[in-house]
């Protein structure tokens, strides 16, 4: 999940991170990661534990001198760590999707909420919301387009 490769030779560095390098990543992306973790785990104390765990985890080491977009890799790692902690603290994931969930908000927001923050697979969302898989993916695209325009 956290392995991040891009076709064309982008492979994560396996160098061992030194404390200074880990702190440099924290100084740069700590706030962003904390914001993402809080979206998934709203309890501040639990979110802080996840943040500390994330920035001192061995997984972070592969993002030191990372040739790709480090921010996106950090986003994925923060999400994975937060979902892992959420499953540990609050029970198994994914959360069941209540009928009529799509009617509560705009479809892109609901789909993003379910896919990114609640770790529902695209197929599960499509099945539960009675949509085509292509519509679910389009909703994710629309979510970011609307976010950019806002």
């Amino acid at each position: 999940m956290n392995e991040w490769e891009r076709p064309g030779g982008r492979v994560a560095s396996q160098a061992i991170a030194k404390p200074a390098e880990q702190l440099a990543l924290y100084d740069r992306y700590g706030s962003m990661a904390y914001g993402i973790i809080l979206q998934i785990l709203p309890q501040a104390q639990q979110a802080q534990e996840v943040l500390v765990d994330m920035f001192s985890s061995p997984e972070l080491q592969q993002y030191v001198n990372y040739p790709g977009n480090t921010a996106v890799a950090i986003v994925r790692l923060a999400r994975a760590k937060a979902l892992e902690a959420k499953a540990r603290l609050q029970g198994p994931l994914p959360q069941p999707i209540e009928p009529g969930t799509a009617a509560k908000g705009s479809l892109p927001e609901v789909v993003f909420e379910l896919a990114f923050r609640q770790s529902c697979s695209i197929d599960t969302i499509a099945e539960k919301l009675q949509l085509q898989k292509a519509d679910v993916l389009k909703a994710i695209h629309d979510y970011f387009v609307s976010f950019r325009q806002a």
Partner: peptide, 28 residues
């Protein structure tokens, strides 16, 4: 990727300063 980075940076929340010391200690 660049656009997503800027979008997620907009939602950044500064963590408490004490967390940096904890991360530094644990990393050491």
């Amino acid at each position: 990727e660049v656009k997503l980075e800027s979008q997620f940076l907009q939602g950044a929340v500064p963590p408490p300063p004490a967390l940096r010391e904890r991360i530094e200690l644990r990393a050491t």
